[in-house]
Design a protein around this nucleic acid. Structure first.
Length: 424
RNA sequence: GGGGAGGUGGCCGAGUGGCUAAAGGCGCACGCUUGCUAAGCGUGUGUACCGAAAGGUACCGAGGGUUCGAAUCCCUCCCUCUCCGCCA
């Protein structure tokens, strides 16, 4: 959510920012109109209530029954006006609030202008494309042949876009999760959390998934429980409605969780393999940062995610996401993509975003600054990393001519010293 | 799922219709003191919104109601704790 004060004071730059993302800036004018009405109503109501309060004090002091009666009668018209005023307020406030919740974040000036993903800027490429003296195969072939995945039974159990990892496939994913969490917790300064995978809707408003993106979420039919699309949701809301110590910032948390997404929008896309499922696993990094250092925190967090790819020996690149491809909540975003030589495509394995106070304002996460003033923190997060796609890249990158897969050195201790996955 | 207790400021804890934003204590901040043993004394210390300011309004789990006036009375809901049942 944007700061209404900012919308009032910097109307033009906010509008320009929104337009650069492809959003319709007309919503800003509607907001300002309602905001004016709201303030007018509030002033009117405050004045009336001040009158009533003063009158009530007088009545309390008046002992003479007749004089008292007269005073009470006199205040009735004020009461009626207050009622009228109160009747008009909710409509305006709800309309205003709805609009505010639907305004996306405004990009930072450094975000490259563009209409869509084709305009994203490649900032860095790391590692060479792996060389093969045979035709590299896609992961679904390799994994099936090794017997470490079962698509058919996954579909039998749960339907399309579900699969079962088995044997060394399941173990490899588990090794990746553990290793990544260990790196973040032991080397990068993140406290590990294991959060709920089901949350109340309020959490999703906090992170910005609701109200606009509810149709990509699964939810309980009877109660207000929603399945998280990412650990970002519970972890960000860990501090909802709290006031943190300035000295405690930045707070860093890493969390593993399963993630659930309907993927309604991408029906026919990515149907082969494990690139896009309704359920997948992910390690998420979240930082709660001081506004003065949040931009640097984004670079730091991005590097924390990137270095994992390097250590896994995967070719990867860093993208600066353009205005037109920015997510609803981000004011700047870097994607990490890793190369999958079998499927011959770049896979997004992490989106690292700075949200400014956009989420903190929705979730009311504040800190007490040096002057003792409560201010909203800035939130930063990114995957570190998304499992299925890292798994794809590991398997396709480290596949061998004989159909086996070499296990990256860093993961071998997590696989009991095993160096290769071979057919059973 | 059934029974009992309770939700007040950073924390503890008063407060049962009016001058209570809310006693007192703790904590914290600033100042003073340094012959009553790392102690004493004083002052200050919630949030949000509107307003140039003065100031005003709202908030004592949430929502609604009664009343000139509610933290205090009534209704509904939520949550926490606890005893019982069930259970990975």
């Amino acid at each position: 959510m944007l700061d209404i004060q900012r919308i009032r004071k910097e109307t033009d730059s906010v509008k320009r920012g929104l337009e650069s993302t492809g959003a319709d800036a007309a919503i800003i004018d509607q907001i300002l109109e309602l905001d004016t009405q709201r303030r007018h109503l509030q002033q009117e109501g405050d004045t009336l209530r001040a009158q009533l309060n003063a009158a009530s004090r007088d009545i309390g002091r008046e002992k003479d029954p007749d004089a008292r009666k007269a005073l009470i009668d006199a205040v009735s018209s004020v009461k009626k006006q207050i009622k009228d005023n109160e009747n008009r307020v909710p409509e305006i406030e709800e309309a205003l609030n709805t609009l505010m919740l639907n305004v996306p974040n405004v990009p930072l000036p450094e975000v490259p202008l563009g209409d869509g993903e084709d305009d994203n800027v490649v900032m860095a490429e790391h590692g060479d494309a792996p060389a093969f003296d045979f035709a590299p195969r896609p992961h679904w072939e390799i994994m099936e042949q090794l017997g470490i995945i079962d698509f058919a039974r996954g579909q039998k159990i749960s339907g399309s876009r579900f699969y079962v990892l088995r044997g060394d496939g399941a173990r490899l994913q588990r090794a990746l999760i553990t290793w990544m969490l260990d790196v973040h917790a032991r080397e990068h300064g993140y406290e590990e959390l294991y959060p709920p995978a089901m949350v109340r809707s309020e959490c999703l408003y906090g992170t910005g998934n609701l109200p606009k993106f509810g149709d990509n979420l699964y939810r309980d039919a009877e109660e207000d429980y929603w399945f998280v699309p990412t650990a970002e949701v519970p972890v960000t809301n860990f501090y909802r409605d709290e006031i943190l110590d300035a000295q405690a910032l930045p707070i860093r948390h890493a969390a593993y969780s399963p993630c659930f997404r309907r993927e309604k929008m991408s029906h026919g896309k990515d149907t082969r393999g494990i690139k896009r499922g309704h359920q997948f696993d992910k390690v998420e990094l979240v930082q709660f940062a001081h506004p003065d250092t949040s931009r640097a925190a984004l670079d730091e967090l991005t590097e924390h995610a990137r270095v994992l790819l390097e250590r896994l020996g995967l070719r990867h690149r860093l993208l600066n996401i353009c205005t037109g491809d920015l997510s609803f909540v981000a004011c700047i975003k870097f994607d990490l993509e890793t190369w999958s030589p079998g499927s011959q495509e770049w896979l997004e394995v992490s989106s690292c975003s700075l949200f400014g106070d956009f989420q903190a304002r929705r979730a009311r996460i504040r800190f007490k600054d040096e002057a003792g003033t409560n201010r909203f923190v800035h939130t930063v997060n990114g995957s570190g990393l998304a499992l299925p796609r890292v798994l794809i890249s590991v398997i396709e990158t480290h596949q061998q001519a004989d159909g086996s897969v070499r296990i990256p050195d860093v993961l071998q201790p997590y696989m009991g010293g095993q160096t290769h996955i071979t057919a059973r």
